[in-house]
């Protein structure tokens, strides 16, 4: 009973901070836009060919944009000492991690999802695929934020954690991108896509259950050093 108001004030703080750092948060979105614009320039302007690749391009762009923003997840809290206080809090640290990751998703994953329809028009993706694209992106980016949080926690104590974070997390993103693009491609091709979507949802649920625990364990190592 008492947990909820406390969590809501923690959540408010995270949203406030995200709002005050909004210029940092615009970067991944801009990056997403640039990837999608450069792609036709680099490959082909042929709409039919682009349409075939569109799910993959949008997914790779969203994944990289997400990766780009992960490094900031715990860094400022680590540097000003707030992270120590979070691990000592009366609230379970996993709930704080869920709060932080949730806000990260709200300010990166969700905007990326909302941007996707606009960009998919530029790649000639059939409009009928849009709802599924957005659904997979929303689920997928949440799972990326959760898994990526572990990597961000492992590298938060390091001076140059950004590149290492990419190396650590990239292999773990493989299933997410396969099932994410797979579902959309299957739908475009008129094939059943429910299995892929179910796999993606299962991955997201699984990471929701496990990732916060591992993230807290990793944060304890970073702080205890």
């Amino acid at each position: 009973m008492t947990l909820l108001p406390l969590l809501s004030s923690v959540f408010r703080r995270e949203m406030q901070l995200a709002y005050r750092r909004r210029s940092d948060l615009a970067n991944p979105l801009l990056f997403f836009l640039i990837v999608v614009v450069l792609f036709p320039l680099g490959v082909t302007p042929d709409m039919a060919k682009l349409a075939e690749m569109a799910p993959g391009v949008l997914w790779v762009g969203a994944l990289l944009a997400n990766l780009l923003s992960l490094d900031l997840l715990f860094r400022s809290d680590y540097e000003d000492g707030s992270l120590e206080q979070m691990l000592l809090a009366a609230l379970p640290p996993t709930s704080l991690v869920v709060c932080k990751v949730g806000v990260h998703w709200l300010v990166t994953g969700l905007p990326l999802t909302v941007m996707a329809p606009l960009l998919s028009v530029m790649l000639g993706l059939p409009g009928s695929a849009l709802p599924l694209l957005m659904l997979t992106l929303a689920l997928g980016t949440l799972s990326l934020s959760l898994i990526g949080g572990i990597g961000a926690a492992l590298t938060v104590g390091l001076q140059k954690g950004g590149l290492l974070l990419t190396l650590l997390i990239m292999p773990l993103f493989v299933p997410v991108i396969i099932f994410g693009t797979g579902a959309v491609q299957a739908q475009v091709a008129g094939l059943p896509w429910l299995a892929q979507l179910a796999m993606l949802a299962a991955m997201t649920t699984g990471s929701l259950a496990l990732a916060p625990l591992l993230t807290v364990a990793a944060l304890r190592i970073a702080v205890g050093d």
């Binding site: 406390l6 004030s9 703080r13 000003d80």
Partner: peptide, 18 residues
Amino acid sequence: AVTLLQSPLENMAYALAL
């Protein structure tokens, strides 16, 4: 543990919430 982007009041509120 003073978050620079927040006011003293907000910092206090967060410390108390934790």
